[in-house]
Every structure is written in C-alpha cells, then in structure tokens.
C-alpha cells in the first residue's frame, strides 16, 4: 500500500548511520520480516526515484489517550551513501515522506526446533532485527554481526535486549573479535548440536562466503539481497539477479523486489 508517513524520530546511531521511525497504517503490523519499503524522499524530480529500505522494525504503541486507538510505527535503519539517503538524514520529527510498503517476499521462519543463525554485515543487519523479534521465544537465536570497524557495528544492545546471543567481530579488531564475521559464524555452524538454519544479509562478498559455508555444511540458508531498483514492484526489471537455472537460452532472472529480497541460497547462481 501507498501512504504518507510522518517522521517520529530520525537519529544518527553511529557516524553516517541513521535509525528512522515513521507512522504507519495498522495494516503494516502484518509486514513479514525481510520485506522492504520504497521511500519517496522528496516530492521533486531530484532525487527522482524511490529508495528501497529493509524493514528494521514494526510495532504498535498504545495510545496516550484513553479510548483512542493504538498507533503503528515502522522503523528503517540506513547508511548515508548518496543523494537520497543524504536528504533523508536531514529530516526531523514532524516531516513527511511518501511510502510504499510492505513489498517483496520475506524470510521463511521455518521449523522452531532448528537453531537460527543470523549473520549481518554492516548495514545488512537492517532486516535482521525484525526477524530476530519474530524468532526469539520460538527458537534458539544466535546473531553474528560484523563490520569494517566499530562504527559499523549497530544496535547490539537492541539485539541483546531481545535475548539474542550476539557475537561481534570487526575487520580491524576495534570491537569484538578481529576478523571476518563469516569466520566466526563458521566455527559455530560446525559445532555439533541441533539442526541449524542461516539467515544472512550484508555485502555480496559476505553473502558469497555464507553461501559457501551453507553448501559445505549442508545447512539451509536464506539470504536477503540489496539491489538498485526503480519501481519495487516487478516492472522495471532493473534489480534482477541470476537464478539457479540461468543460461543465455533459458533466462532465469529473478526480481530482487518481488521474488526476493529474500532467497533460499540454492535458488541463486553465485558465480
């Protein structure tokens, strides 16, 4: 659905990273973890296109006034990377943005008996918080969070508050373990124990490494992809990725916006 949202808060949580809370219609409470929103940053022609953001959180707060209905909110976590996010970062409480949401196919929560391994790289943690919220209480959840340096590690406290076991690593060792998040995660995946499922979101090299580990260890794995897109509804075909059966004569392109952004790793072509 398409709606005008009012910004409730827009806070810089780490240098260059913002967490924005906006008002949303009650229907948004039904959004699935892993779905995304398209934001029209300005009612102008520059920036022209909407920008896609993963849903960081959706919730409902009780009304401050007795007898009034409760209010739904939606949160996005974003990194300032260009014209669109730069403009967005200047917004304050009370400003408005135009939203299309929820879009796309989200995560499959799977069997509660399995242990859930969440892997996030940098801003890739954005869709994992809402996922963790849906998983805790059902399943054991461990969250592996990596970044280049400590400023790229976001919202650790929020995950811990959910009761998620959180493991932090940085490439330069300024926070948590030194090294790649995939290396830390791999050690835990190879532990004996109950069956596991991996949920990953982050930069492509990280996702490739995660997919490799999933394949080697025979662990089911879902990845959430990021892509440039113009429409978010399967029309522009700008955001496609190659599916497992892709060939020149037998095209198998999948739209990140509609078939994804979440895919089972074995549905994609990783070369």
């Amino acid at each position: 659905m398409q709606f005008k949202a009012t910004i409730i808060a827009n806070q810089e949580v780490s240098p260059g990273y913002f967490r924005m809370r906006i008002t949303a219609p009650p229907e948004l409470a039904g959004a699935q973890p892993g779905q995304f929103v398209m934001v029209r940053v300005r009612d102008a022609i520059d920036p022209l296109l909407r920008r896609p953001f993963g849903i960081f959180d959706v919730g409902t707060v009780p009304s401050e006034y007795p007898g009034c209905s409760s209010a739904t909110y939606l949160e996005m976590l974003y990194k300032v990377v260009g014209k669109g996010t730069e403009a967005l970062s200047t917004y304050h409480h009370g400003d408005h943005v135009d939203i299309i949401a929820p879009l796309g196919t989200g995560f499959d929560l799977g069997d509660p008996e399995e242990e859930k391994i969440l892997v996030g790289g940098g801003i890739g943690i954005a869709p994992l918080y809402y996922l963790a919220k849906a998983l805790v209480g059902r399943s054991r959840v461990r969250f592996f969070l990596g970044g280049r340096t400590r400023d790229d590690i976001l919202c650790v406290t929020e995950f811990e508050r959910l009761g998620v076991e959180t493991y932090v690593s940085t490439d330069d060792g300024t926070l948590g373990d030194r090294g790649l998040v995939t290396e830390v995660m791999e050690r835990h995946i190879r532990e004996e124990g109950r069956k596991k499922t991996i949920y990953a979101c982050g930069p492509m090299p990280m996702l490739k490494a995660v997919a490799g580990i999933a394949r080697q260890t025979g662990t089911p794995c879902q990845v959430s992809l990021e892509a440039y897109m113009a429409c978010g509804m399967g029309a522009c075909l700008g955001c496609v990725v190659k599916g497992r059966d892709h060939g020149d004569e037998t095209p198998d392109y999948r739209c990140v916006c509609k078939d994804g952004p979440v895919f089972a790793f074995d549905q994609l072509m990783w070369v």
């Binding site: 522009c236 496609v240 095209p251």
Partner: peptide
Amino acid sequence: AGNPTPRIQETTGGMLNAIGLQ
C-alpha cells in the same frame, strides 16, 4: 534474458536503463 546488471542508474532529473528487452 536481457542485459547483465547493473541495468539502471538515476541521473539528474531522469534515469538510464539498459534492461535489454527482457
């Protein structure tokens, strides 16, 4: 099949596309 990605890019007041008729 269409073209490889990246297929689209926003430009000032417009956008470029090279979808390749997928």
